[in-house]
Amino acid sequence: MKQYKLMLAALIAVFFTACIQIEEEVELKDDGSGQISVSSDMGKLFELVKSFASEEDLQKEGMDKALDTMIHMKDLIDTARDISAENKALLREGIMKVKLNMKENQFNLDMKYPFKNYSDANKLYAAINEKGMMGDALKGLKQNNGEAGSDGQPPVPGAGGPGLEKFSSVYDITFSKGEYRRTLNRARYDSLVSDPKLQESKGMMAMMGEMAMNLTVKLPRKAKSVSNPKAILSDDKKTVTLKNDMILALDSPQNMEIIIRY
């Protein structure tokens, strides 16, 4: 059991920096409003857990129970500590969907955050990426530290940790009229890659195979220019898709930089 817990802790450490498959979508409208969506597929995490843990071990840890729920962020944000009133206002309209079923190797996390204008969009990204902020909000689920919640549901691995935003925070993402800009923040990137936990997890990340990290930007009108030559432009020139692998992105983060003018 001790070995199982140590291995599970290592896997959760991987979850903090990589979520196997990340699909980020930004939808922009003519009036400056829109929505940020992030979908993560972490089923491979369960495949690894089951490769060394027995069914009895999983039952004892409460990981054999399925979870399928939708969380309105306002129910967590309003009572969360250490979050500014401004960030609460930006995040409270968000929705999070969690599907967890170890027997079927299913672990999906989907988040959607709407915004009203460019200014709110810029602040929203900063709020999502704020260190520790989302973890504090997730404490409302009472599922931290590998413990089941008060409703008897299984724990959500990574709840309370840095999660998705830890890697996405290495980019400065800004919205303005007619432009979407995603550029590398070298100081934050250097800080991330110097973290011993990240270096320790790289070997395990490689065991999981390809880990997609994709960005899709839906525009209100045709794109005039796209800076990244690897980006794919749709036939109507209103959708820009940039695909990458998480491990490659960690080593060459400039591959996910992009400036779109429309």
Results as ranks from 00 to 15, higher is better:
62 G>I: 15
115 F>E: 00
142 K>H: 14
52 F>S: 10
84 S>A: 08
56 E>Q: 10
78 D>E: 10
84 S>C: 10
120 D>Y: 01
111 M>G: 11
105 N>R: 13
60 K>P: 09
115 F>R: 01
68 D>S: 13
90 L>P: 06
76 L>A: 05
56 E>L: 11
60 K>L: 15
85 A>F: 14
48 L>V: 13
121 A>K: 01
119 S>N: 06
133 M>V: 15
65 K>P: 10
111 M>T: 04
122 N>D: 07
90 L>Q: 03
119 S>Y: 05
108 N>M: 13
117 N>F: 14
134 M>Y: 10
98 V>Q: 03
47 E>V: 11
127 A>H: 08
69 T>S: 09
53 A>G: 08
52 F>A: 04
116 K>R: 14
77 I>H: 03
124 L>S: 06
102 M>G: 11
62 G>F: 15
55 E>N: 13
79 T>N: 12
98 V>K: 10
121 A>G: 11
54 S>E: 04
104 E>L: 14
54 S>V: 03
124 L>N: 01
107 F>A: 01
109 L>Y: 12
120 D>S: 04
51 S>L: 09
96 M>V: 14
107 F>T: 00
80 A>P: 11
110 D>G: 02
86 E>P: 05
125 Y>N: 06
119 S>L: 07
126 A>H: 07
107 F>H: 04
102 M>A: 08
72 H>K: 12
121 A>Q: 00
78 D>Y: 12
102 M>T: 08
136 D>Y: 05
76 L>E: 00
105 N>M: 05
103 K>A: 13
62 G>V: 12
111 M>N: 07
134 M>S: 06
139 K>N: 02
97 K>H: 09
135 G>M: 01
63 M>L: 13
133 M>A: 15
55 E>W: 10
121 A>Y: 12
107 F>L: 08
132 G>S: 05
112 K>R: 13
79 T>W: 14
111 M>D: 02
73 M>Y: 10
68 D>E: 11
87 N>W: 05
73 M>S: 06
92 R>I: 00
129 N>A: 11
